[in-house]
Design a protein around this nucleic acid. Structure first.
Length: 227
DNA sequence: TACCAGGTCCTCG
DNA sequence: CGAGGACATGGT
């Protein structure tokens, strides 16, 4: 059940994060040198859209840097980072190119299935594909296609739990956030990226480093930490 | 050395 | 439904 002033609280959290970190410019795209490029124009062109979809699958339970970036760089160097090229590529060769991303056999299969899919870009169709769950689907919808789907990940669930919003399953937390936040694609993009930044820097799984956390003053867990 | 990282699927109660 | 295991590489 939502707390009183949930909207204001969610916006205050966003403001704190934005003031602390600034714009994150997600989703990054890898250039020819294998470096992340942020703050690209929207809407994305077709190549960027496809790269974001591939990256969203590759980053499942895996660090973006360096694991996924290396895999994307390999695909780019081999000129196979396109729907058409991936369909021609054998699963074995694809697996070898994306090995650094981990779970490479599963992910090769997932990418082949995604590359072969031809349905419309909507949540239901994405979720019907083997290998695409709610977070990957929402990442694709939001960051590749600019559709307002708030992305929930492990960081998001942990952070809002510690802040005092309670333990929520994916759909439950997503509904909470989307119900109380304005329907704004750019806000959704930045908010999720900022939560990931906070998760990496402060709100880690085992031992969160509450000292210096930009959300400390409004965090239930942070109060415990101070006591 | 063990643990963690921008999850998802499958199996079993 | 939800818990628990499998999937794998790379950095600390």
């Amino acid at each position: 059940m939502p707390l009183p002033n949930t909207t204001k609280r969610l916006q205050a959290i966003y403001q704190q994060l934005y003031q602390y970190y600034g714009s994150q410019g997600w989703w990054p795209v890898v250039n020819a040198q294998g470096e992340n490029i942020y703050h690209l124009h929207a809407p994305r062109n077709e190549d960027e859209q496809f790269e974001i979809c591939v990256g969203a699958i590759l980053t499942q339970n895996t660090q973006w840097e360096p694991n996924v970036v290396r895999a994307l760089h390999n695909l780019k160097k081999e000129n196979v980072l396109s729907r058409h090229a991936l369909q021609q590529l054998s699963e074995e060769r694809l697996g070898a190119l994306i090995r650094s991303a981990g779970y490479y056999q599963q992910k090769a299969k997932k990418l082949k299935i995604f590359a072969a899919s031809a349905g419309p870009i909507d949540r239901e169709t994405l979720l019907s594909l083997w290998g695409i769950g709610p977070e990957t689907a929402d990442s694709i919808l939001l960051y590749a296609y600019g559709q307002p789907s708030f992305v929930i990940d492990a960081y998001t669930q942990r952070i809002f739990s510690r802040l005092g919003f309670g333990e929520h399953a994916y759909a439950s937390l997503q509904q909470l956030l989307m119900k109380h936040l304005p329907n704004d694609v750019e806000l959704y993009k930045e908010y999720h990226a900022l939560l990931v930044a906070l998760g990496k820097d402060f709100c880690a799984k085992k031992n969160p480093r509450c000292s210096g956390c930009p959300l400390l003053k409004q965090c239930a867990y942070g109060k415990t930490y101070h006591a």
